[in-house]
Design a protein around this nucleic acid. Structure first.
Lengths: 107, 107
DNA sequence: GCTTCATTTCCATAACTATGGAAATATAGA
DNA sequence: TCTATATTTCCATAGTTATGGAAATGAAGC
């Protein structure tokens, strides 16, 4: 992963509304949630929500799937794992002997 | 960790210059680097660098230590690990059965 | 084709963030 | 104290991001 992608993905998550949306989608699992249902549960107006979903989608952190009149959004675990791997390497590389132990196992 | 801290830490890293600074400090290890030496190696003007270091420091991702006329900055591994743990939980919680396996072991 | 409902785009506005030169501050040594 | 060097603060400017209402688009059923 290049730093440009990492920055894009980090910026996507570095915003309260978007981080909440992403967490909600992770909870929801592979089927995801319709846009309207995200907006309802997080109390975000449709146009604002659409803006944030586009950001997340552009960063590759969520996938969109149209189903009739609904658009289902779901978390893209591969991208998230790629980001975690990047951060882990940037945290730990050349610093193995430092106090650099994870608080939890990854997954 | 609360989402407010996570957002603050993510925002700090979600910027090309700051991500590079942080990577540089991780490479440098526990002794860290003087501000001027970071600026020189990354070609960042002093005032801009100072601004970014303050952001990272405010998020708790770097520590500052004054030594004579120099200020040594170093990566705060504990904060970074906390962030990784938060993201890992938010990536994997309630989704154990999804295709959510890390690309590498954490550290 | 008309209606209904879901979502996105458009747009103006407000708020925040990044940049870097110049001046200020701080420290060490002569 | 004077000087040199390191870093930060101040400040103006430019650029980016977030917000949400109104209008537009799209999809399904009658």
């Amino acid at each position: 992963m290049d730093t440009t992608s990492a920055v894009l993905q980090l910026s996507s998550l570095a915003q309260e509304a978007r981080l909440n949306i992403f967490r909600r989608l992770v909870q929801a699992g592979a089927n995801g949630l319709a846009a309207g249902s995200i907006g309802e549960s997080l109390q975000i107006p449709a146009s604002t929500l659409s803006f944030h979903l586009k950001e997340l989608s552009h960063a590759g952190l969520v996938n969109a799937r149209q189903d009739g009149r609904f658009v289902y959004y779901s978390a893209n675990y591969a991208t998230m794992n790629g980001l975690l791997a990047f951060l882990t390497e940037n945290c730990c590389a050349d610093a193995a002997e430092q106090s650099c132990t994870p608080k939890t196992d990854c997954c």
